[in-house]
């Protein structure tokens, strides 16, 4: 006989109750949101399932693909590997906060111009990641951009376009700095 592997010792007659929800305040795209969340809700699920901000994508839920990338205090992170309760007091920026269809950010426009996506599912994560890369100011050459955009997997294989799009914006930004 083989047992389904479970979270319990087995033979349990009563199971630990789910945690109760509490009040959590998140600052998302500059707006304070008061939400009722249990501690086990990740930032990613809080955005998608509780705040109806579905622009942030779930591609693996384990920090292995980068689709869920958002910016926290300007730094890019994987929102699937942090709990919403751990992000109180931080400034969270999602793809919806970077631009809207009628007011695209330079990165969003560059992604369209260079056809830097196909199915579009990894795209919000790619763009948030690229925004984080710009904020870091560490990537200038093509090789540096390739490496520092490698935390975002694109199964369609749009990497050539992604590189071109990010490079264009990086170059424009460094011209402004000069």
């Amino acid at each position: 006989m083989i047992q389904q592997p479970t979270n319990t010792a087995g033979g349990a007659t009563s199971l630990p109750a789910p945690p109760s929800a509490g009040s959590v305040t998140l600052t998302i795209n500059g707006v304070q949101r008061h939400m009722q969340l249990a501690p086990w809700t990740t930032l990613l699920d809080a955005l998608r399932e509780y705040a109806d901000l579905t622009g942030t994508k779930k591609g693996c839920d384990h920090g292995q693909c980068g689709s869920c990338t958002v910016l926290v205090n300007g730094k890019r992170i994987n929102s699937c590997l942090t709990l919403a309760v751990m992000q109180e007091g931080n400034e969270i920026t999602t793809i919806e906060g970077l631009g809207q269809p009628e007011s695209l950010s330079p990165l969003q426009q560059a992604f369209i111009d260079h056809d830097a996506f196909q199915c579009g599912y990894c795209t919000p994560g790619q763009i948030c990641s690229a925004q984080g890369l710009l904020n870091e100011g560490r990537a200038h050459t093509e090789d540096e951009i390739r490496e520092l955009m490698s935390g975002n997997i694109c199964r369609c294989g749009a990497y050539v376009g992604i590189l071109a799009a990010v490079k264009e914006v990086v170059d424009k930004q460094s011209e402004i700095v000069k």
């Binding site: 109806d52 269809p101 969003q108 579009g120």
Partner: peptide, 20 residues
């Protein structure tokens, strides 16, 4: 350029698990 590009780059394109 892709006509659905703006929807995809802003996260407004809705995939199956996103109809809340």
């Amino acid at each position: 350029s892709r006509v659905e590009g703006p929807a995809k780059v802003t996260g407004t394109a809705k995939y199956s698990a996103e109809f809340n």
